[in-house]
């Protein structure tokens, strides 16, 4: 789920950076409004580490393999901190391992970060969506985790197809994207389960870490 350098044209990559700067400004503005903006920095740093390592963990799904994304988990646990955490994580992934690229950092941040914020919005609204019950956090967590992966796949498809250069066969690329999307269906289930389990664990072990109790 990392678009590398050289795939997208300069207009799309610049638009990606502009969009990322705008979303980052909104997130940092929301964080600055808090009583203690630094309170969640340790949590954000730890989850950035988890996000950074996750892209190295390959889940074999024949005939290919996909890697964990954890963008839904970051959204649900970190809230507004999720987007900056993803930008930092993507930067290190690009610089260290060439996953993604520096020109596409903005686009990749939007592709993974926007679904992350959607997961946060969904989780924040869980008390209005479901009755308060021990299972409701886990249920919303599953949908948020799976939905964040699905949204990221859709965004990648839109960005790639919108920025297709003339020499690329669009039909072949569309078929490749369909295979790519299908390979991510099991990952949606895996990430949904991961988020649900983490939330169930946090609820028991340290409920103070849950957003919007």
């Amino acid at each position: 789920m990392h678009i590398p350098d050289g795939i997208l044209g300069p207009a799309v990559t610049l638009a990606g950076y502009a969009g990322t700067a705008a979303v980052m400004a909104v997130c940092l503005g929301q964080i600055a409004k808090r009583d203690d903006p630094r309170r969640d920095v340790p949590k954000a740093a730890m989850l950035t580490a988890a996000f950074f390592v996750a892209s190295l963990v390959h889940v074999p799904i024949p005939p290919t393999s996909v890697h964990l994304m954890l963008n839904g988990l970051l959204g649900v646990v970190l809230g507004w901190f999720a987007f900056p955490a993803i930008v930092v994580g993507l930067f290190f992934q690009a610089v260290m391992f060439g996953h993604g690229g520096l020109t596409t950092l903005g686009v990749n941040a939007l592709v993974l970060g926007l679904p992350s914020l959607l997961a946060f919005a969904l989780f924040s609204a869980r008390h209005r969506l479901l009755p308060a019950a021990p299972w409701s956090d886990a249920a919303v967590g599953f949908v948020a985790g799976a939905g964040a992966v699905a949204a990221a796949v859709v965004l990648v498809a839109v960005v790639v197809l919108a920025g297709l250069p003339a020499h690329v066969d669009p039909d072949l690329e569309r078929r490749a994207i369909q295979v790519f999307a299908l390979a991510h269906v099991p990952l949606m289930v895996i990430e949904g389960v991961v988020v649900a389990m983490v939330l169930a664990f946090l609820r028991k072990a340290s409920p103070e870490l849950l957003l919007g109790r």
Partner: peptide, 21 residues
């Protein structure tokens, strides 16, 4: 080593802000 360096940097950041708090 590269992975561990980045992860340790992030854990260090977490510990730094935890300690300040």
């Amino acid at each position: 080593v590269m992975t561990a360096s980045v992860v340790w940097g992030l854990i260090g950041t977490a510990l730094f802000f935890q300690r300040r708090r």
